[in-house]
Design a protein around this nucleic acid. Structure first.
Lengths: 148, 148
DNA sequence: ATAAACACTATCAACTAGATAGGGTTAATG
DNA sequence: CATTAACCCTATCTAGTTGATAGTGTTTAT
């Protein structure tokens, strides 16, 4: 399950991309029905990661810092929900060995989930906010590499 | 992230399939380094769903009820972790509408995650315990249906 | 100066994950 | 037929997470 936080983040980014200009937190919150204070934290986090920028004071607001066609779903999910991989031993950003697993190489479970992870990454790391708006989600998953 | 519980379940099933005969909870627990009492609950749950059977009393134990090549990863995950879908509005076994989503049909986020879900299902609902043991995980994901 | 916006940090209630505990029921065996 | 060793069941616990709220600080246009 993807968290509410990540969902809100994606929706806020879609809203900002569609608007094409700076929006105030309050506007985004109202338009997307997101709890205002919660959205504040989310945008702040996205800002820390260089996805959006903000202007303070009266007439302040948020705007995309990266172009919408360079912000991927994968990026956003990793920021807010952590690793995409369903097992720590498959994560690139937060690898951790499974303590109770003899050898990683012939862990049957790992093999299977490696396939799942790869195909999820294939979609999420290719699809951008711009794609989502345009309705052209990357459909071609293509060949999923066997995990050797 | 897949839960520890589901991981244990899969490993226990692999162990049972490999053994080819009945095993006692204690044996499985020791062999797979799974907390014994925790495994008890897991096997009980698998039994309730007709995946394994048990024999009570001295010389009791657990054995597969379904053949290993008919038990899919998807089945096991759904029993222990619930829906595979990352959004309630994409789940088949536990569908729930997103309250804050105007129309489901043109929710950009839903569209993208539908692709992810489909490809995950393609792997998990095809790959069986027997496949995992034999090292022949279904590699061909094939065409992932666009979500209309 | 002041109003209105973002920036931060702390806190909270509800839930979940992972496990442990302990008694109940069944069945082989001497 | 008592005993032992297995599964059966339910309750409980602890630590952590999620989703959210609260309150105070800082910046900036007017």
């Amino acid at each position: 399950m993807i968290s509410q936080k990540a969902k809100y983040a994606l929706r806020a980014l879609v809203a900002l991309a569609r608007a094409g200009e700076s929006m105030m937190i309050g506007e985004i919150a109202a338009q997307e029905k997101i709890p205002r204070k919660f959205l504040e934290q989310i945008l702040l986090e996205l800002k820390r990661h260089g996805i959006v920028m903000s202007r303070r004071g009266k007439l302040g607001g948020y705007a995309l810092l990266m172009p919408a066609d360079q912000i991927t779903f994968g990026q956003v999910l990793r920021i807010l929900d952590g690793p995409l991989a369903p097992l720590p031993c498959l994560s690139r950003i937060a690898y951790r060995r499974c303590v109770d697993c003899r050898t990683e190489e012939d862990c049957e479970i790992r093999h299977v989930f490696a396939l799942v992870t790869n195909s999820a990454r294939a979609v999420l790391d290719r699809t951008t906010i711009a794609d989502a708006i345009a309705g052209r989600e990357s459909v071609a998953v293509g060949a999923v590499e066997p995990v050797s």
